[in-house]
Design a protein around this nucleic acid. Structure first.
Length: 324
DNA sequence: AAGCGGGACAACCGCATTTGA
DNA sequence: TTCAAATGCGGTTGTCCCGCT
């Protein structure tokens, strides 16, 4: 076995072993999360620098919510921020403490697939037949996934001008119209409620819709049960300002990882978070690393804010033309 | 019990951007 | 100023697990 083991000078790929993680963690403890390439050049690991960085960022960083499903609140935030920023996963992830861009990306991808599948079921004329309501798999045989009108996120190549969604404004109808046409939903039989972007369905909604599409729930009844989020009307956002300051303190806490490790759902589910009327979430920096790193990069308050997206404060004004 | 499909997740790849010599 | 290396990011693919038929 050990098909992945390679000789020196070769590059190892595939799943990481615990030993490798340990080496990587030690490196970060010593030098901070940088100089990834030196890990290989020093012969510590036969991994590329990119691979090392990715492993650290996505799995080993101390404040990650590994294994925790996205909460309803996180889901809502992702939906809203995706509508606002497009597929800027890294940016979106900064608003979700403990989540990585990969997490957000995977979450969104899964969600889109699921949504597409649901819509396919609800939109295909045969879907209301008894045969199709029996199983989703039946349809899969007749329509490959790629034939599905995938619920594309609005293409926001460089800007979101069409969204024109900012503080004090309601969601522009152009966005809704746009998404409506882009997705070309065939929903003659189970039309989705008008003027609701399917991208904005929450997980719970989709579950309900899935039932609808399967025909196991009478449409009218199900529709009455589906909650359509008020998105993205300006609304109270979870604000993490206080938490951000806590984070700052925790960065200097050698037990930071323990402090954060069990970080779980309840914190985000409303109880402890201050809900303040603010138009936008504040991103959270997640640069938890060793003491050496701190020594090299003392985290001053200014430095802390330097880590926020430069345009973060621009959003306090009507968005000009958020060109990233 | 076996096969299949979907969901979740980890990791790779290619390109873009930043950094530093 | 230029260029190579390092880093960051988004898209994509592969794998594993679980539930359903």
């Amino acid at each position: 076995m050990e098909g992945n083991r390679v000789e020196t000078s070769q590059i190892r790929k595939g799943p990481w072993k615990a030993e490798e993680d340990e080496v990587l963690i030690n490196h970060v403890k010593k030098y901070g999360p940088r100089d990834w390439s030196s890990i290989r050049s020093k012969g510590l690991l036969q991994r590329t620098g990119k691979s090392c960085r990715l492993r650290w960022v996505n799995k080993l960083r101390p404040n990650l919510k590994n294994g925790c499903k996205f909460t309803a609140e996180e889901e809502r935030v992702v939906i809203e921020l995706q509508a606002q920023f497009g597929n800027k996963w890294a940016k979106i992830a900064t608003y979700l403490p403990g989540r990585t861009d990969n997490d957000v990306k995977n979450f969104w991808s899964s969600r889109q697939k699921r949504l597409a599948r649901i819509l396919q079921n609800s939109g295909t004329p045969s879907s209301s037949s008894s045969s199709s309501s029996r199983s989703l798999k039946v349809k899969k045989q007749t329509h490959g996934f790629h034939d599905v009108p995938v619920m594309e996120a609005p293409k926001l190549s460089s800007s979101m001008e069409e969204l024109s969604y900012s503080k004090g404004q309601s969601f522009s109808s152009s966005y809704l119209d746009n998404s409506h046409s882009q997705t070309t939903i065939k929903a003659e039989e189970f039309p989705l409620p008008e003027l609701v972007n399917p991208n904005l369905y929450t997980d719970a909604n989709m579950a309900q819709l899935e039932l609808m599409s399967r025909g196991t729930t009478p449409y009218a009844e199900a529709q009455s049960q589906v909650f359509f989020p008020e998105i993205p009307q300006p609304q109270p956002y979870l604000t993490l300002s206080l938490e951000s300051q806590d984070l700052l303190a925790k960065f200097e806490d050698p037990c930071f990882s323990q402090v954060f490790a069990p970080m779980d759902v309840p914190e985000l589910e409303g109880g402890n978070l201050n809900v303040v009327e603010q138009p936008f979430l504040e991103p959270v920096t997640c640069s938890a690393f060793g003491a050496k790193e701190e020594a090299d990069n003392p985290m001053t308050p200014d430095a802390f804010f330097d880590d926020f997206p430069a345009d973060m404060f621009d959003q306090m004004e009507p968005l000009p033309s958020p060109s990233e």
